[in-house]
Design a protein around this nucleic acid. Structure first.
Lengths: 147, 147
DNA sequence: CTTTCTGCAAAAATTTTGCACGGAC
DNA sequence: GTCCGTGCAAAATTTTTGCAGAAAG
């Protein structure tokens, strides 16, 4: 998919730009991040890596994901009680709407987000740097199914 | 504060209702949860507990927080890269603003949240059941410190 | 050839669990 | 007296770090 290739290239370019070496392991991790839509954990990435790099160290995956995150090319998604997940396809914060029945995820374009950030700045004096915004509910399809 | 006492009572009642025993340790953990505005971690709770219960086990805190969570009386707040925090004062979902410097967490009252839920319902047809909404930024104090 | 990167293993940090004793009811 | 809860220690997870050798540029 074109999108995956674009993300792959963007990540490689960012690495080059910051004079990081392009090791095969690193490139393989980037490939997995750019192709995975399911927000893989370090363990997921490591497991998929074994195919091409048997014996690759999990520490290497941690180090590289951390590096890529520091370059702003992957979004970290932490849930309580489980290991951290990563989104390398859309590295910038964005809201999600998740259907709790069919697990479908959509990325809405919320006009009210900008307004909300303004409200926060005004009310609390915080300078908003980033956010995470996930709504969980029942999608139209699932609502009609068991109405 | 009245609010703290109400929360304390609500948690105790819920325990009684489900036939859980009211041990001193358990009551002390509930007291801390009901009084803490800063969303303490298990470690935080455990440290504060030492005052009244020297030698209290961290495992006991874990077990009790888990129990109280299963009764719906505490909100679990997980962030990537650090231990899970808990809010016993507002056990239902609500937005957070987290300072990325001093880690302070505040609970804003956002008028625009209702509007955002409406926007989601209108635009996507989702029936919003729950959410998690966390903004990360720099609080006024930390902004002035290194301005 | 220099510097970074990797693998390994150990250490940290966080959370869970088994078991015997003790305390709430 | 009966269970449930606690303390302790060990185990299980998840993530970080030190170091020596390997490899990218």
């Amino acid at each position: 998919m074109q999108e995956s290739r674009d993300r792959y290239k963007a990540m490689v370019d960012k690495l080059k730009e910051h004079n990081h070496k392009l090791t095969p392991q690193r490139l393989a991790i980037i490939r997995i991040l750019s192709e995975s839509k399911e927000h893989p954990s370090v363990e997921d990435i490591s497991r998929r890596l074994q195919r091409d790099f048997p014996g690759v160290s999990e520490a290497t995956v941690y180090r590289n994901v951390l590096l890529i995150k520091s370059l702003g090319e992957v979004l970290e998604i932490g849930f309580a009680g489980e290991s951290t997940h990563y989104d390398g396809r859309k590295p910038h914060p964005h809201p999600h709407i998740v259907c709790i029945k069919c697990r479908k995820i959509i990325d809405p374009d919320l006009q009210s987000l900008k307004e909300m950030v303004e409200e926060i700045t005004e009310e609390s004096g915080f300078e908003v740097v980033t956010y995470r915004l996930d709504f969980f509910g029942i999608c139209p399809g699932c609502r009609t199914m068991n109405a």
